[in-house]
Structures are given as C-alpha cells and as structure tokens.
C-alpha cells in the first residue's frame, strides 16, 4: 500500500513532465532531447528563489512558467523552425531535431556547470510527515502531486475545450489536413513547443521540493519522459497520465524492494517490453 501511494505521488509529477514532452513531440513534432534540462532549470529556479528569498515553490512556478515559455518559444523560432523549413522528409527533420536538441542540452548543462558548478541542489520545503490510511508520507510530495493534478487537469481542459487547444490536437493527428482547414500550423507548433517547455519546467520546480537535482540529471528525466510518452502513446493525454503513474509505481517498487540504483534499469525494461509488444503505445490504435 505504502509503495503504491508513494509511487502514485511520484507518478503524478512525472505525468506533468511527460505531458510537456508530449506537447513538444506529439503536437509540435519535435523530439526535444533538451527537455530534461528545462526540468532542471525549473527546479533550479525554485531552489534559488527559496534559498534567496524564502519564496514558496508553489509561487515560483508563476515565474518559472512564463520564462520557460519565452525561452522555448525562442528556441523553436531560432533553431527549430529553420530545420522544419529545410527538411525534405519527416526522417530528416527527426535526425536534425535530435542533433540540435542534444546540442542545446549539452550547451545548457555546460552553462549551468560554468555558472553554478556541478553541485547538487536541494532545500527543505514542507518536509513534514502527513498520515493517510495509517501510513506517513512527506507533505511536499503530496503537495507536488496535487499541484500536478491541477495543472494536468487545466491542460486537458484547455486541449479539449478551447479553439487553440483543439487546433493543436488537430495538428497532432493530421498536420497536412490541419493546414487545409485554416489552422496556422507554424504558429501553433511554436505555441505547443513553448507550452510544453513551460509545463516541464513547472514539473521541475515541483519535483525539486522532494528530489535532489543537479546539472547532469536532466538527461535521465528526458529519458523517463520519453519512455512515458511512448508508453502512453504519442499525442495521447490520457495515456501519458496512466503511463506516468505506472512508471512512478514501478520505480518506487524497485527502489524499495530491490535497489534504488536500478530504477532506470527497471523503467528501461518496461520500455523494451512496450516496444516489443505494443509499439503504438498502451492505448494507441495499431497503425496500418
């Protein structure tokens, strides 16, 4: 029971991070391998505001989100849009995007190392126990989970109920037809990309309340987010949430019962199983 709830709490935050990547890959069609770096940057923002001015991470996200949005929008316009324009095929764009975002990831890690060094950063926020059905949980995990739920819910409503959200989903399903019905694909792709970056950064700010981050952990989170996105199905919001919760539970399970050093190995094996048996994602329709 304890493992299940701790896993669910972790999975909730994962869902938020993976949702960010899914917006970028599923909707904007860019596999952003620098995604984890924005998570770390968001976490770093929360850390900095908390240690410098005792600002609650829950308030910091209102600063982190717009800043990350702006930076990601710029990245899309400056680096990625030229690639989208010059790409002759989907495959070529994929390769270029992978190389570019890897380059950006290294660049960002390098910047962080240069300015702040390779130290771990952690702080103590709401590190109080709360009791629920006879077991105790850290309050910061619970708070992060509920914040993630609220944001995921908001995103889902935005994607399903608003015109912009629905247009973005249309791009995910059929980019060519979307253009035909008058959707401004380039503008909305940039929007989806920027929004995805903002969501991931917010996830980073939340996760930093209970996990220790450092400059080099970004890539691990990118990997986890990718596993979740592929497991849940590219462009599928509901699948992402369920896959994230599953991964959270699996990791907690492995960390508690076997060895904390094997969490990524477990996630990876899950990924292999998905690739072998359901490459279209847990809930995706088999593409003909």
């Amino acid at each position: 029971m304890d493992i299940l709830f701790t896993g669910l709490l972790l999975g909730g935050t994962y869902a938020l991070i993976a949702m960010g990547l899914n917006l970028q890959y599923g909707m904007a069609r860019i596999m952003n391998l620098a995604n984890g770096e924005f998570l770390v940057a968001g976490g770093f923002g929360a850390f900095w505001f908390f240690t410098a001015g005792q600002v609650s991470p829950l308030l910091t996200i209102f600063i982190v989100a717009p800043v990350a949005f702006a930076i990601n929008w710029l990245i899309y316009v400056v680096f990625l849009r030229p690639l989208v324009k010059r790409a002759k095929s989907r495959g070529q764009l994929e390769v270029d995007a992978i190389l570019t975002t890897f380059g950006l990831a290294f660049f960002l890690v390098g910047l962080t190392l240069a300015f702040f060094g390779g130290d771990y950063f952690s702080y103590s926020y709401l590190a109080r126990p709360v009791t629920f059905i006879g077991e105790t949980y850290a309050l910061n995990r619970v708070v992060a989970f509920f914040a993630a739920v609220v944001i995921c819910g908001g995103l889902w409503l935005w994607l399903t109920r608003t015109r912009a959200g629905m247009s973005i989903r249309a791009i995910a399903v059929a980019p060519d037809s979307a253009r035909l019905v008058g959707i401004d694909v380039p503008r909305l792709s940039a929007l989806a990309f920027a929004l995805g970056g903002a969501v991931t950064a917010v996830g980073g700010a939340l996760i930093s309340t209970f996990l220790t981050l450092d400059a080099s952990t970004g890539v691990l989170f990118t990997l986890k987010a990718l596993i979740i996105v592929i497991m849940g199905g590219v462009g599928d919001v509901r699948g992402t949430v369920i896959a994230a919760l599953m991964l959270g539970i699996l990791e907690t399970f492995v960390a508690t019962l076997i060895d904390p050093g094997l969490t990524l190995a477990a996630a990876y094996l899950l990924f292999v199983a998905i690739l072998l048996f359901r490459p279209q994602g847990l809930f995706g329709r088999r593409q003909a």
């Binding site: 990997l223 050093g261 990924f271």
Partner: peptide, 22 residues
C-alpha cells in the same frame, strides 16, 4: 521509427552501467 532507436540506444549504456554497478 528513428526516435525510438535513439532513446533505446541512449538508455542502453545507462542500463548496462546500472546493472554492472549493482
């Protein structure tokens, strides 16, 4: 697709490293 392959291979070294360390 190529993206899955990149992720898979990126994780592979990490997976083996974790297993060997363990």
């Amino acid at each position: 697709s190529g993206v899955y392959f990149v992720i898979f291979t990126l994780g592979l070294a990490e997976l083996i490293r974790q297993l060997v360390t363990w």
